[in-house]
C-alpha cells in the first residue's frame, strides 16, 4: 500500500513536470539514487576506497545511464511490454561493454582499479530502474536529462563516500597527502565502508528531516511489479 502511494506520487510528479531543469536537478538532491532511494549500493560500497575511484565509477555509470536511457526512450514503442526487462538488460549490457572497452583503451589504470565492478554496472539497479520507471515512458530529451541528473547524483554520492573514506582511512584526498599522523585504516576496509555509508545516509536523513525507516532497495526496484505481492510474504 505504501509502495503504491509512493509510485502514484512519483507519477504525479512526472505529469506536472516543471520544465526540463527539474528532470536534471531531481537526481542530484530530491531523488538522489544512492543517498535517498538507496539504490546501487554494491558499487557505492565497493569502489569508494578512494575519491578518484568514486568519480571514475560515477562517470562510467553516467555514460551507460545516459546512453541506455536515450536508446530505450527511442525504442519504447518497438519493445514489446512482456519482454521489456530482458530487452533493457541487453541494451544496458551492450553499453557497459562499450564503456569497458573505452576505459581499457584510454584509462587502463582506472580500469584495473575498478576491476569486476565495471561489468557489474549491468546489474546496477539505478540504471534498470530509470529505464523502467522513466525512459520507457518519456521522450528522448527528458530521458537524457534524467540520465544526466541521476548519474550526477550517483557520482556526487560516490565522491562524498570516497572522500570520507580516503581522508579517514588513508589520510589523503584525491591522492594528495594531508599529513594526518595516524589514519584509521579500517575505513578503507569493507567494514569501514558499511559504517561510513551508514553515517552519511543518517546525516542526509537528519538534514532533510526524513527517516529512511521501512525503506529498502526493493521498493524502487524495477522488478517491483512482478513481485510486489510476493515481497509482502517475505
Amino acid at each position: 500500500m505504501h509502495t503504491e502511494s509512493l509510485l502514484h506520487r512519483k507519477k504525479m510528479i512526472f505529469m506536472n513536470e516543471k520544465g526540463m531543469l527539474n528532470e536534471f536537478t531531481k537526481g542530484l538532491l530530491k531523488e538522489n539514487p544512492t543517498l535517498v532511494s538507496l539504490l546501487g549500493m554494491c558499487p557505492t560500497l565497493a569502489v569508494t576506497t578512494m575519491a578518484a575511484n568514486g568519480i571514475g565509477m560515477g562517470i562510467a555509470a553516467t555514460l551507460v545511464l545516459v546512453c541506455s536511457n536515450a536508446v530505450i526512450s527511442c525504442l519504447k514503442k518497438v519493445i514489446p511490454d512482456s519482454v521489456r526487462l530482458p530487452c533493457f538488460i541487453v541494451i544496458i549490457a551492450g553499453f557497459v561493454t562499450l564503456t569497458e572497452l573505452i576505459m581499457k583503451g584510454f584509462f587502463p589504470e582506472l580500469y584495473d582499479r575498478l576491476g569486476i565492478y565495471l561489468p557489474l554496472i549491468t546489474v546496477n539497479c539505478i540504471i534498470l530502474g530509470r529505464a523502467e520507471s522513466f525512459a520507457s515512458k518519456n521522450d528522448l530529451l527528458p530521458s537524457i536529462l534524467d540520465g544526466l541528473g541521476m548519474g550526477a547524483g550517483f557520482t556526487a554520492a560516490l565522491f562524498l563516500t570516497g572522500s570520507v573514506r580516503e581522508i579517514l582511512g588513508m589520510g589523503s584526498w584525491m591522492g594528495i597527502d594531508l599529513h594526518i599522523s595516524s589514519p584509521m585504516t579500517v575505513f578503507v576496509l569493507p567494514a569501514g565502508g558499511f559504517f561510513a555509508l551508514g553515517c552519511i545516509i543518517a546525516a542526509v536523513n537528519r538534514l532533510s528531516g526524513r527517516s529512511s525507516e521501512d525503506k529498502n532497495g526493493c521498493e524502487k526496484c524495477p522488478c517491483i511489479d512482478s513481485c510486489k505481492e510476493r515481497i509482502q510474504d517475505i
Partner: peptide, 23 residues
C-alpha cells in the same frame, strides 16, 4: 536509536560490525 539512524543507516552499521567479525 536516534530517528535519523532508523532504517537503512542502522542496518548498514550493523552490517559493518558483522563484516568486522568476518575480517
Amino acid at each position: 536509536i536516534p530517528a535519523a539512524f532508523k532504517g537503512a543507516p542502522s542496518t548498514l552499521i550493523a552490517a559493518s560490525v558483522v563484516s568486522l567479525a568476518f575480517m
